[in-house]
């Protein structure tokens, strides 16, 4: 399941819902992304996440489907926020539930790495001197690349 929303989410509630009623789930692995107060350019007061409504949902659904095609997942979840966020705020939650831990760990890691390079979000950081758009990072691309062939069906 995917959700793109302005409002915060409760991690405990979301994870409980993910496996609720599914006794085939043996483990749930999750990752929560938070806004930091520091970047390489100094302290930030807040950030605004812009996104592309429509494409965001499509991109996240594609990433989610890709995870299900590669690992035997019982359930998965991506929640991504947009709008104005302050240091300490939750930005993103990804979770994967499976019968055994390995698929849950790997799929969770895959989901967050792929999301970073595929989902159309842009960060505007507000510092003391104004706003600055955050550049994409080469190591994010590298992190996503290492999954290119993992558990992928032969083509």
């Amino acid at each position: 399941m995917i959700r793109v929303q302005l409002e915060d989410f409760d991690v405990g509630t979301e994870l409980a819902k993910l496996s609720d009623g599914n006794l085939g789930v043996g483990g749930v692995c999750s990752f929560v992304g938070l806004v930091r107060d520091m970047t390489k350019d100094g302290k930030i007061g807040a950030m605004t996440l812009e996104h592309y409504p429509g494409m965001t949902e499509k991109a996240l659904a594609d990433i989610d489907a890709e995870a299900h095609s590669r690992w035997p997942l019982q359930a998965s979840l991506i929640i991504h926020r947009y709008g104005r966020l302050e240091p300490g705020d939750r930005i993103v939650l990804v979770a994967a539930a499976s019968a055994h831990r390995e698929a849950a760990f790997e799929a969770c890691h895959f989901l967050i790495d792929y999301l970073k390079t595929r989902a159309p979000f842009w960060k505007l950081e507000q510092t003391g001197t104004g706003g600055k758009w955050v550049d994409a990072r080469d190591d994010d691309d590298a992190a996503a690349r290492r999954w290119h062939s993992v558990n992928k069906a032969a083509e």
Partner: peptide, 26 residues
């Protein structure tokens, strides 16, 4: 609403979006 390369065709009726490299997540 699908990422494409510069050789991809465009036509009337398409929705074409231009943006910087994406920076989602954390």
């Amino acid at each position: 609403q699908t990422h494409v390369g510069t050789a991809h065709p465009v036509a009337d009726g398409d929705e074409v979006a231009f943006f910087p490299p994406v920076t989602g997540g954390t």
